[in-house]
Amino acid sequence: MAQKKSASTQQEVKSELVFTKKNYQLLLISIAIVVVGFILMMGTTGDIYDFRRTLLAPLVVLFGFAFGIYAILKK
């Protein structure tokens, strides 16, 4: 004997996404920043100890990772 549940007792299960569209946009921006940092790290000149390769590029990559953490934690 199956009993029918009335419409008032049925609760509609609402599935919400964990991230919003803004979170995904910020995450894509952070991935782009990390990629730019790695491109800067590759360099075009033969000098390994260049300012761009040793200081600027790692800072850009770290900023990209930090921005990615911000994009994940943002509500």
Rank of each mutant, 00 (worst) to 15 (best):
T9Y: 05
I33T: 07
T44S: 02
L26Y: 02
I72R: 01
Q10N: 12
E12M: 02
F38M: 13
G46N: 15
G64L: 04
A7I: 01
V18I: 08
L73P: 03
E12L: 08
L59S: 09
V34Q: 06
L59A: 15
I31W: 02
G68R: 03
Q11V: 07
G46L: 09
Q10M: 13
F51T: 06
K14L: 08
I39E: 06
A32Q: 14
A32P: 11
F38Q: 03
L28Y: 06
L26K: 00
T54K: 11
L27D: 11
S6Q: 03
I72G: 09
T45P: 03
D47T: 04
T44N: 09
K4D: 07
Q10S: 08
I72N: 04
S30V: 13
N23T: 00
A2M: 00
I31N: 05
F51M: 11
L55D: 07
L56H: 07
T20L: 01
G43S: 01
I31A: 12
K22N: 14
F63L: 11
Q25V: 10
I33D: 01
G37K: 07
F51A: 05
Y24K: 06
G46D: 15
L55H: 13
T20P: 00
T45K: 05
A57P: 00
T20N: 04
V36R: 02
F19Y: 10
S15V: 14
K21W: 00
F67Y: 07
S30T: 04
S30M: 08
F19T: 15
G43D: 13
E16K: 12
A7W: 14
K22A: 14
I31F: 12
T44K: 15
G68N: 08
G37D: 03
G46W: 14
M1K: 13
G46R: 11
E16L: 12
Q3I: 12
Q25I: 13
K75H: 01
K14W: 01
I72E: 00
M42F: 15
G64N: 14
M41D: 06
S6V: 00
A66N: 06
K21R: 11
L59F: 15
L26M: 03
I39C: 01
G64D: 04
F63T: 09
K4N: 01
R53Y: 15
T44C: 06
L55W: 07
T54N: 13
I69P: 02
V18G: 12
I39N: 07
G46A: 14
L40W: 08
S15C: 12
N23P: 05
I72K: 07
E16W: 09
G43F: 02
L26C: 06
V35D: 11
Y70C: 15
M1A: 09
D50C: 03
V35R: 05
R52D: 12
K75P: 11
N23E: 03
L56Y: 02
T44R: 14
A57N: 02
T9V: 04
V35W: 12
Q3H: 14
V13G: 10
G46Q: 13
I72V: 06
Y70E: 05
N23F: 06
G37E: 03
Q10E: 08
V36Q: 04
L62Y: 00
L62G: 10
F65K: 00
L56D: 02
Y49W: 15
F65N: 08
